[in-house]
Amino acid sequence: MDKGWPHEIVDVLGVGVSKADVRMLRDFLEEAVLSRRQLTVTFANPNYVMAAQHDAPLRELMNAFDLNLADGWGVVLAAKIFGTPLPARMANDDLTDDFFGMPAEKGWRVFLFGNAPGTADAAAENLVNWYPGLRIAGTQHGHWADESGRIAPADVDRLVDEINEAKPDILHVGLGTPLQQIFVTENRDRLEVPVIITCGAYFEHLAERREWYPGWVLRLRIGWLYRLYREPRRLWRRYTIELGAYLSLVLRHRVRRGRRRHDARDR
Results as ranks from 00 to 15, higher is better:
19 K>F: 07
138 G>D: 10
151 I>C: 02
175 L>D: 00
9 I>Q: 11
198 T>Y: 00
255 V>I: 14
255 V>F: 15
56 A>W: 05
116 A>V: 02
39 L>I: 09
83 G>P: 07
10 V>I: 15
46 P>K: 12
59 R>E: 10
122 A>L: 14
119 T>L: 03
254 R>G: 09
122 A>R: 15
104 A>T: 09
132 P>Y: 14
151 I>D: 01
152 A>V: 12
185 T>C: 04
240 T>N: 15
200 G>A: 08
132 P>G: 14
229 Y>M: 14
234 R>A: 14
39 L>C: 04
79 A>D: 12
38 Q>W: 10
157 D>M: 02
188 R>C: 02
225 L>S: 08
198 T>R: 00
211 E>Y: 10
146 D>V: 08
238 R>E: 03
76 V>T: 12
180 Q>S: 03
267 R>A: 10
249 L>D: 08
235 L>Q: 10
176 G>E: 01
14 G>E: 06
246 Y>D: 02
237 R>M: 06
13 L>N: 04
34 L>D: 07
236 W>Q: 09
234 R>L: 13
48 Y>K: 15
70 A>F: 02
54 H>Y: 05
9 I>M: 11
249 L>K: 10
142 G>H: 00
15 V>W: 02
86 L>R: 03
28 F>L: 06
231 E>W: 03
1 M>C: 06
132 P>N: 14
226 Y>T: 02
246 Y>E: 04
232 P>T: 13
149 G>L: 06
189 D>P: 01
191 L>A: 05
141 H>L: 10
63 N>H: 06
152 A>D: 14
149 G>K: 05
60 E>A: 13
124 A>P: 00
45 N>V: 00
3 K>N: 14
227 R>K: 11
231 E>N: 13
126 N>L: 11
99 F>R: 03
260 R>E: 15
51 A>H: 02
121 D>G: 08
131 Y>S: 04
225 L>N: 03
73 W>A: 04
219 R>N: 05
69 L>W: 04
196 I>R: 00
74 G>S: 13
68 N>V: 15
226 Y>C: 02
99 F>Y: 15
143 H>G: 07
18 S>H: 04
18 S>I: 04
77 L>T: 14
56 A>E: 15
225 L>M: 11
91 A>M: 06
156 V>A: 03
180 Q>N: 03
151 I>M: 02
73 W>M: 11
179 L>G: 01
220 L>I: 05
3 K>V: 02
145 A>P: 13
81 I>N: 07
261 R>E: 13
146 D>G: 15
43 F>V: 01
130 W>M: 11
97 D>P: 05
172 H>K: 05
86 L>G: 04
224 W>I: 07
179 L>R: 00
174 G>H: 05
36 R>M: 04
265 R>K: 13
144 W>H: 15
199 C>T: 01
17 V>A: 08
222 I>D: 07
136 I>W: 03
195 V>T: 06
228 L>A: 02
1 M>N: 05
66 D>K: 00
174 G>K: 01
91 A>N: 07
77 L>F: 11
227 R>E: 04
41 V>N: 01
9 I>L: 12
213 Y>K: 08
187 N>C: 06
134 L>Q: 08
181 Q>H: 08
255 V>A: 13
66 D>C: 09
249 L>H: 07
7 H>Q: 15
214 P>K: 00
197 I>K: 04
206 L>M: 11
